[in-house]
Design a protein around this nucleic acid. Structure first.
Lengths: 141, 141
DNA sequence: GATTAAATAAGAATTATTCCTATTTACAAG
DNA sequence: CTTGTAAATAGGAATAATTCTTATTTAATC
């Protein structure tokens, strides 16, 4: 798992400043390393500590962190886009717990199974996500 | 492919009225049988014919059609939820053309590949979508 | 044709996100 | 350390999609 020092380095390495508001946003993700967070949730938590941080700043910062690969987007069927700390650098997919919201990486990718089977269609991207209940949530009533 | 008569029957069969506004919404989907449409697009087209139809009605109608399985939701990474006419009754996934928006059914489902591999996690739902360029769009510059 | 519950129109309200502009700040160079 | 500079931010307004509220209308049934 990536740590906060690395995130600061990655920002600076790409020519971005390491500012106070950006640190606040990054801290929110580290405080919830398994959760999936909508930007508005991140905003609320940031403003809980620092009420004068503007929405615009938080939205731009999350977009920047996504571009840098620090957080990754998760797509739920009936909700807004959510993010979590990036799991790692290799290609992977996710298991999402419908009860507690925990997100776990899944190394398997089904792309190899279809690459040859979709005649005439050239694949450039794909999505694969599994939803269900994690071990802990299955055991607690 | 489902036809309009069947949709009317399915509505009535489930105890819903077949009203004018609902017919307008259904017609939009039949007019674009391969397209993926955001609700706001459906709204715009409906209001093009009948300006006094309220947004609320269109949103509720699309939600109803989804519940009845007449349309199915498609999830694009960075856009709002979109819908298209349901492809059929059997379980399937989709190929989505990033240029023209055409959506084609894909019969393969990767679920069998992972069912046994995710220890402790009980899967109840999943998503699999492929994005790329359809034959026609590859050939036209 | 009359009855009734369901559906709708109209427009306001809500909420997430983006835009605008003056001000502030991180960082680097002297 | 001080200063210069572009980048980043705050604050608040604007936008746009979606939902809510309530009085009115309508499809289906009797």
């Amino acid at each position: 798992m990536i740590d906060r020092e690395q995130v600061a380095k990655r920002l600076k390495g790409a020519g971005y400043k390491f500012t106070g508001p950006r640190r606040l946003v990054i801290d929110v993700f580290f405080r919830h390393p398994e959760a999936s967070l909508a930007v508005k949730d991140v905003l609320a938590e940031v403003q809980g500590e620092c009420p004068h941080v503007s929405p615009d700043t938080v939205y731009r910062t999350v977009a920047l962190l996504e571009k840098l690969g620090v957080v990754e987007p998760l797509d739920f069927s009936d909700e807004a886009k959510k993010y979590r700390l990036a799991c790692g650098t290799e290609h992977h997919h996710h298991l999402v717990c419908l009860r507690c919201g925990a997100v776990m990486p899944l190394q398997y990718c089904p792309l190899v199974e279809v690459e040859d089977g979709v005649e005439g269609f050239s694949i450039v991207d794909h999505r694969f996500e599994l939803y269900g209940y994690c071990k802990a949530c299955q055991q607690t009533p």
